[in-house]
Amino acid sequence: MTAIAPGTLQKSSQRGSAARARLLRGLLPALSLALVLIAIAWLNPRAISYFGFNLMLNLAIPIALATIAQMFVIAGNELDLSIGTFVGFVGCVTATWLRDAPLMGIVVLLGSIGVYALLGALIHLRNLPSIVVTLGMSFVWQGLAILVLPKPGGKAPDWLLSIMSFKPPYIPFPILAALIIAAVVHFGLMRTSYGVILRGSGGNAAALRRAGWSLLRTKIVLFALTGLFGVLSGMALIGITTSADANIGNGYTLLSIAGVILGGGEFVGGRVSPIGAVLGALTLALAASPLLTFMHIPPDWQVAANGAILIIVLAARVLISRRER
Protein backbone atom coordinates (compact mmCIF):
# COMPACT_ATOMS: atom_id res chain seq x y z
CA MET A 1 0.00 0.00 0.00
CA THR A 2 1.61 3.28 -1.01
CA ALA A 3 0.59 5.71 1.67
CA ILE A 4 2.48 8.62 0.07
CA ALA A 5 0.17 11.42 -0.96
CA PRO A 6 -0.11 11.76 -4.72
CA GLY A 7 1.71 14.71 -6.21
CA THR A 8 -0.20 17.77 -7.23
CA LEU A 9 0.91 17.34 -10.82
CA GLN A 10 -1.55 15.71 -13.17
CA LYS A 11 -4.18 15.95 -10.47
CA SER A 12 -7.09 16.23 -12.83
CA SER A 13 -6.10 13.23 -14.91
CA GLN A 14 -5.50 11.23 -11.75
CA ARG A 15 -8.90 12.19 -10.48
CA GLY A 16 -10.37 10.98 -13.73
CA SER A 17 -8.70 7.59 -13.49
CA ALA A 18 -9.62 7.33 -9.80
CA ALA A 19 -13.25 7.97 -10.68
CA ARG A 20 -13.04 5.32 -13.38
CA ALA A 21 -11.51 2.85 -10.93
CA ARG A 22 -14.24 3.59 -8.41
CA LEU A 23 -16.91 3.03 -11.06
CA LEU A 24 -15.24 -0.25 -12.03
CA ARG A 25 -15.13 -1.25 -8.38
CA GLY A 26 -18.83 -0.48 -8.00
CA LEU A 27 -19.58 -2.55 -11.09
CA LEU A 28 -17.54 -5.51 -9.85
CA PRO A 29 -20.48 -7.36 -8.21
CA ALA A 30 -22.52 -7.00 -11.39
CA LEU A 31 -19.54 -8.07 -13.52
CA SER A 32 -18.96 -11.21 -11.47
CA LEU A 33 -22.64 -12.14 -11.77
CA ALA A 34 -22.51 -11.50 -15.52
CA LEU A 35 -19.41 -13.66 -15.80
CA VAL A 36 -21.12 -16.57 -14.03
CA LEU A 37 -24.22 -16.12 -16.22
CA ILE A 38 -22.13 -16.09 -19.41
CA ALA A 39 -20.35 -19.25 -18.29
CA ILE A 40 -23.69 -20.95 -17.65
CA ALA A 41 -25.11 -19.74 -21.00
CA TRP A 42 -22.02 -21.04 -22.78
CA LEU A 43 -22.12 -24.43 -21.08
CA ASN A 44 -25.86 -24.91 -21.32
CA PRO A 45 -27.79 -22.33 -23.39
CA ARG A 46 -31.13 -23.88 -22.49
CA ALA A 47 -30.64 -22.91 -18.83
CA ILE A 48 -31.06 -19.25 -19.76
CA SER A 49 -34.84 -19.32 -19.87
CA TYR A 50 -37.82 -18.53 -17.67
CA PHE A 51 -37.98 -22.10 -16.46
CA GLY A 52 -34.21 -22.45 -16.12
CA PHE A 53 -33.86 -19.36 -13.95
CA ASN A 54 -36.77 -20.48 -11.78
CA LEU A 55 -34.90 -23.72 -11.14
CA MET A 56 -31.37 -22.37 -10.82
CA LEU A 57 -32.29 -19.46 -8.58
CA ASN A 58 -34.69 -21.53 -6.51
CA LEU A 59 -32.83 -20.91 -3.25
CA ALA A 60 -31.56 -17.46 -4.15
CA ILE A 61 -34.37 -15.60 -2.34
CA PRO A 62 -33.60 -16.92 1.17
CA ILE A 63 -29.85 -16.51 0.54
CA ALA A 64 -30.37 -12.93 -0.62
CA LEU A 65 -32.51 -12.14 2.46
CA ALA A 66 -29.93 -13.68 4.81
CA THR A 67 -27.20 -11.69 3.07
CA ILE A 68 -29.16 -8.47 3.55
CA ALA A 69 -29.59 -9.42 7.23
CA GLN A 70 -25.83 -9.88 7.58
CA MET A 71 -25.25 -6.61 5.73
CA PHE A 72 -27.07 -4.61 8.42
CA VAL A 73 -24.80 -5.82 11.24
CA ILE A 74 -21.72 -5.37 9.06
CA ALA A 75 -22.85 -1.78 8.38
CA GLY A 76 -22.42 -1.22 12.13
CA ASN A 77 -18.94 -2.83 12.18
CA GLU A 78 -20.26 -6.01 13.78
CA LEU A 79 -20.57 -9.56 12.53
CA ASP A 80 -23.37 -12.07 13.07
CA LEU A 81 -22.13 -15.65 13.21
CA SER A 82 -25.55 -16.89 14.34
CA ILE A 83 -27.63 -15.92 11.30
CA GLY A 84 -27.46 -19.44 9.86
CA THR A 85 -28.82 -21.22 12.91
CA PHE A 86 -31.30 -18.35 13.39
CA VAL A 87 -32.66 -18.96 9.88
CA GLY A 88 -32.94 -22.64 10.82
CA PHE A 89 -34.82 -21.76 14.02
CA VAL A 90 -37.22 -19.50 12.12
CA GLY A 91 -37.71 -22.28 9.61
CA CYS A 92 -38.68 -24.73 12.35
CA VAL A 93 -41.12 -22.26 13.89
CA THR A 94 -42.60 -21.52 10.45
CA ALA A 95 -43.14 -25.19 9.65
CA THR A 96 -44.80 -25.93 12.98
CA TRP A 97 -46.35 -23.16 15.05
CA LEU A 98 -46.96 -20.66 12.26
CA ARG A 99 -49.13 -23.29 10.56
CA ASP A 100 -50.78 -24.88 13.60
CA ALA A 101 -51.11 -21.86 15.88
CA PRO A 102 -50.51 -18.77 13.72
CA LEU A 103 -50.91 -16.27 16.56
CA MET A 104 -48.30 -17.98 18.71
CA GLY A 105 -46.02 -18.39 15.72
CA ILE A 106 -46.20 -14.66 14.98
CA VAL A 107 -45.53 -13.81 18.63
CA VAL A 108 -42.48 -16.11 18.73
CA LEU A 109 -41.07 -14.68 15.50
CA LEU A 110 -41.61 -11.10 16.65
CA GLY A 111 -40.07 -12.07 19.99
CA SER A 112 -36.98 -13.41 18.25
CA ILE A 113 -36.57 -10.07 16.46
CA GLY A 114 -36.82 -8.52 19.93
CA VAL A 115 -34.01 -10.83 21.11
CA TYR A 116 -31.87 -9.53 18.26
CA ALA A 117 -32.61 -5.95 19.32
CA LEU A 118 -31.65 -6.81 22.92
CA LEU A 119 -28.40 -8.38 21.70
CA GLY A 120 -27.60 -5.14 19.90
CA ALA A 121 -28.21 -3.21 23.13
CA LEU A 122 -26.13 -5.69 25.16
CA ILE A 123 -23.22 -5.58 22.71
CA HIS A 124 -23.24 -1.79 22.76
CA LEU A 125 -23.72 -1.26 26.51
CA ARG A 126 -21.16 -3.83 27.67
CA ASN A 127 -18.84 -3.17 24.71
CA LEU A 128 -18.79 -6.88 23.88
CA PRO A 129 -17.21 -8.53 20.84
CA SER A 130 -20.13 -9.38 18.55
CA ILE A 131 -18.26 -12.41 17.14
CA VAL A 132 -18.27 -14.16 20.51
CA VAL A 133 -21.79 -13.15 21.51
CA THR A 134 -23.28 -14.31 18.21
CA LEU A 135 -21.22 -17.51 18.26
CA GLY A 136 -22.80 -18.23 21.65
CA MET A 137 -26.23 -17.31 20.29
CA SER A 138 -25.75 -19.70 17.37
CA PHE A 139 -25.84 -22.52 19.94
CA VAL A 140 -28.97 -21.06 21.52
CA TRP A 141 -30.86 -20.85 18.20
CA GLN A 142 -29.73 -24.33 17.20
CA GLY A 143 -30.88 -25.73 20.55
CA LEU A 144 -34.23 -23.95 20.31
CA ALA A 145 -34.69 -25.25 16.76
CA ILE A 146 -34.10 -28.81 17.95
CA LEU A 147 -36.57 -28.28 20.80
CA VAL A 148 -39.23 -26.93 18.42
CA LEU A 149 -38.69 -29.63 15.80
CA PRO A 150 -36.69 -32.61 17.10
CA LYS A 151 -37.04 -34.52 13.84
CA PRO A 152 -37.03 -33.14 10.28
CA GLY A 153 -40.58 -32.53 9.18
CA GLY A 154 -43.39 -30.04 9.66
CA LYS A 155 -45.16 -28.29 6.84
CA ALA A 156 -45.14 -24.75 5.55
CA PRO A 157 -48.36 -22.73 5.88
CA ASP A 158 -50.38 -22.80 2.65
CA TRP A 159 -50.32 -19.03 2.15
CA LEU A 160 -46.51 -19.11 2.28
CA LEU A 161 -46.36 -21.95 -0.23
CA SER A 162 -48.57 -20.05 -2.65
CA ILE A 163 -46.47 -16.89 -2.31
CA MET A 164 -43.23 -18.73 -3.00
CA SER A 165 -44.63 -20.64 -5.98
CA PHE A 166 -45.95 -17.42 -7.56
CA LYS A 167 -45.23 -17.36 -11.31
CA PRO A 168 -45.27 -13.80 -12.65
CA PRO A 169 -45.36 -13.30 -16.42
CA TYR A 170 -42.03 -12.86 -18.29
CA ILE A 171 -39.76 -12.31 -15.28
CA PRO A 172 -38.93 -15.38 -13.14
CA PHE A 173 -40.08 -14.89 -9.54
CA PRO A 174 -36.60 -15.15 -7.92
CA ILE A 175 -35.32 -12.33 -10.13
CA LEU A 176 -38.40 -10.21 -9.42
CA ALA A 177 -38.04 -10.84 -5.68
CA ALA A 178 -34.32 -9.98 -5.79
CA LEU A 179 -35.12 -6.71 -7.59
CA ILE A 180 -37.75 -5.79 -4.98
CA ILE A 181 -35.49 -6.68 -2.01
CA ALA A 182 -32.58 -4.71 -3.46
CA ALA A 183 -34.75 -1.69 -4.28
CA VAL A 184 -36.49 -1.54 -0.89
CA VAL A 185 -33.30 -1.93 1.16
CA HIS A 186 -31.34 0.40 -1.10
CA PHE A 187 -33.96 3.11 -0.62
CA GLY A 188 -34.13 2.58 3.14
CA LEU A 189 -30.42 2.41 3.88
CA MET A 190 -28.88 4.57 1.15
CA ARG A 191 -31.53 7.20 0.44
CA THR A 192 -33.18 8.05 3.77
CA SER A 193 -31.62 10.32 6.38
CA TYR A 194 -31.78 7.71 9.16
CA GLY A 195 -30.15 5.22 6.79
CA VAL A 196 -27.20 7.61 6.57
CA ILE A 197 -27.08 7.73 10.39
CA LEU A 198 -27.13 3.91 10.55
CA ARG A 199 -24.22 3.65 8.13
CA GLY A 200 -22.49 6.50 9.93
CA SER A 201 -22.50 4.47 13.14
CA GLY A 202 -20.12 2.12 11.36
CA GLY A 203 -18.23 4.88 9.57
CA ASN A 204 -17.46 7.29 12.36
CA ALA A 205 -19.20 6.48 15.62
CA ALA A 206 -17.44 9.20 17.59
CA ALA A 207 -18.55 11.94 15.20
CA LEU A 208 -22.11 10.64 15.29
CA ARG A 209 -22.17 10.64 19.07
CA ARG A 210 -20.86 14.19 19.23
CA ALA A 211 -23.56 15.24 16.80
CA GLY A 212 -26.08 14.05 19.37
CA TRP A 213 -27.23 10.75 17.89
CA SER A 214 -27.76 7.75 20.13
CA LEU A 215 -25.34 4.97 19.22
CA LEU A 216 -27.35 2.62 21.42
CA ARG A 217 -30.36 3.24 19.23
CA THR A 218 -28.51 2.77 15.93
CA LYS A 219 -27.11 -0.54 17.15
CA ILE A 220 -30.53 -1.73 18.33
CA VAL A 221 -32.10 -0.75 15.00
CA LEU A 222 -29.35 -2.47 12.98
CA PHE A 223 -29.65 -5.69 14.98
CA ALA A 224 -33.45 -5.63 14.86
CA LEU A 225 -33.27 -5.24 11.07
CA THR A 226 -30.93 -8.23 10.95
CA GLY A 227 -33.46 -10.19 12.97
CA LEU A 228 -36.29 -9.06 10.69
CA PHE A 229 -34.51 -10.12 7.50
CA GLY A 230 -33.37 -13.34 9.18
CA VAL A 231 -37.05 -14.11 9.87
CA LEU A 232 -37.98 -13.30 6.26
CA SER A 233 -35.15 -15.54 5.04
CA GLY A 234 -36.25 -18.48 7.19
CA MET A 235 -39.87 -18.11 6.06
CA ALA A 236 -38.89 -17.87 2.40
CA LEU A 237 -36.68 -20.93 2.76
CA ILE A 238 -39.54 -23.00 4.22
CA GLY A 239 -41.90 -21.69 1.54
CA ILE A 240 -39.56 -23.33 -1.01
CA THR A 241 -38.54 -26.52 0.79
CA THR A 242 -42.08 -27.00 2.26
CA SER A 243 -40.73 -28.76 5.37
CA ALA A 244 -38.05 -27.93 7.91
CA ASP A 245 -35.05 -29.37 9.71
CA ALA A 246 -33.11 -27.89 12.63
CA ASN A 247 -29.91 -27.78 10.56
CA ILE A 248 -31.50 -26.36 7.42
CA GLY A 249 -29.88 -22.93 7.64
CA ASN A 250 -26.43 -23.79 8.99
CA GLY A 251 -24.62 -22.98 5.76
CA TYR A 252 -26.15 -19.50 5.60
CA THR A 253 -23.78 -17.90 8.10
CA LEU A 254 -20.79 -18.23 5.81
CA LEU A 255 -22.81 -17.70 2.62
CA SER A 256 -24.24 -14.44 3.94
CA ILE A 257 -20.84 -13.05 4.95
CA ALA A 258 -19.40 -14.07 1.60
CA GLY A 259 -22.36 -12.46 -0.20
CA VAL A 260 -21.90 -9.11 1.55
CA ILE A 261 -18.18 -9.04 0.78
CA LEU A 262 -18.73 -10.13 -2.84
CA GLY A 263 -21.24 -7.32 -3.12
CA GLY A 264 -18.61 -4.73 -2.34
CA GLY A 265 -19.18 -4.43 1.40
CA GLU A 266 -16.32 -3.86 3.82
CA PHE A 267 -15.96 -5.06 7.37
CA VAL A 268 -15.29 -1.65 8.84
CA GLY A 269 -16.42 1.83 8.04
CA GLY A 270 -20.09 1.23 7.34
CA ARG A 271 -19.32 0.70 3.63
CA VAL A 272 -22.01 -1.65 2.43
CA SER A 273 -24.19 -1.89 -0.65
CA PRO A 274 -27.65 -3.50 -0.60
CA ILE A 275 -27.76 -3.90 -4.39
CA GLY A 276 -24.27 -5.37 -4.35
CA ALA A 277 -25.22 -7.74 -1.52
CA VAL A 278 -28.19 -9.09 -3.48
CA LEU A 279 -26.01 -9.47 -6.59
CA GLY A 280 -23.38 -11.23 -4.47
CA ALA A 281 -25.99 -13.62 -3.10
CA LEU A 282 -27.26 -14.39 -6.62
CA THR A 283 -23.69 -15.01 -7.82
CA LEU A 284 -23.06 -17.43 -4.97
CA ALA A 285 -26.40 -19.19 -5.51
CA LEU A 286 -25.65 -19.65 -9.21
CA ALA A 287 -21.99 -20.49 -8.87
CA ALA A 288 -22.49 -22.95 -6.04
CA SER A 289 -24.43 -25.62 -7.84
CA PRO A 290 -25.84 -24.91 -11.34
CA LEU A 291 -22.50 -23.77 -12.78
CA LEU A 292 -20.61 -26.68 -11.24
CA THR A 293 -23.20 -29.18 -12.41
CA PHE A 294 -22.88 -27.90 -15.97
CA MET A 295 -19.10 -28.06 -15.70
CA HIS A 296 -19.35 -31.63 -14.41
CA ILE A 297 -17.51 -30.78 -11.24
CA PRO A 298 -18.33 -33.18 -8.40
CA PRO A 299 -20.36 -31.75 -5.50
CA ASP A 300 -17.33 -32.24 -3.22
CA TRP A 301 -15.84 -29.09 -4.69
CA GLN A 302 -18.92 -26.88 -4.36
CA VAL A 303 -17.69 -25.29 -1.14
CA ALA A 304 -14.27 -24.77 -2.67
CA ALA A 305 -15.90 -22.98 -5.60
CA ASN A 306 -17.45 -20.50 -3.18
CA GLY A 307 -14.06 -19.92 -1.58
CA ALA A 308 -12.33 -19.59 -4.94
CA ILE A 309 -14.90 -17.08 -6.22
CA LEU A 310 -14.43 -14.99 -3.07
CA ILE A 311 -10.65 -15.03 -3.48
CA ILE A 312 -10.82 -14.16 -7.20
CA VAL A 313 -13.24 -11.27 -6.68
CA LEU A 314 -11.18 -9.90 -3.80
CA ALA A 315 -8.02 -10.16 -5.88
CA ALA A 316 -9.75 -8.25 -8.69
CA ARG A 317 -10.80 -5.63 -6.18
CA VAL A 318 -7.21 -5.21 -4.98
CA LEU A 319 -6.04 -4.67 -8.57
CA ILE A 320 -8.71 -2.03 -9.10
CA SER A 321 -8.17 -0.33 -5.75
CA ARG A 322 -4.47 -0.02 -6.48
CA ARG A 323 -5.38 2.22 -9.40
CA GLU A 324 -7.88 4.12 -7.30
CA ARG A 325 -5.14 5.50 -5.02
Binding site: M1, F267, V268, W301, V303, A304, G307, A308, I311
Partner: peptide, 19 residues
Protein backbone atom coordinates in the same frame (compact mmCIF):
# COMPACT_ATOMS: atom_id res chain seq x y z
CA UNK B 1 -1.56 -10.26 -0.91
CA UNK B 2 -5.27 -9.40 -1.10
CA UNK B 3 -5.18 -6.97 1.83
CA UNK B 4 -8.43 -8.42 3.10
CA UNK B 5 -9.56 -8.75 6.71
CA UNK B 6 -8.27 -11.99 8.28
CA UNK B 7 -11.85 -13.11 8.92
CA UNK B 8 -12.63 -13.23 5.20
CA UNK B 9 -9.22 -14.60 4.25
CA UNK B 10 -9.40 -17.50 6.70
CA UNK B 11 -13.08 -18.01 5.82
CA UNK B 12 -12.43 -18.35 2.10
CA UNK B 13 -9.40 -20.53 2.81
CA UNK B 14 -11.54 -22.76 5.01
CA UNK B 15 -14.06 -23.23 2.16
CA UNK B 16 -11.28 -24.52 -0.07
CA UNK B 17 -9.65 -26.65 2.66
CA UNK B 18 -13.01 -28.20 3.50
CA UNK B 19 -13.46 -29.34 -0.08
Amino acid sequence: ALRIPPIIATLSASFVIQS
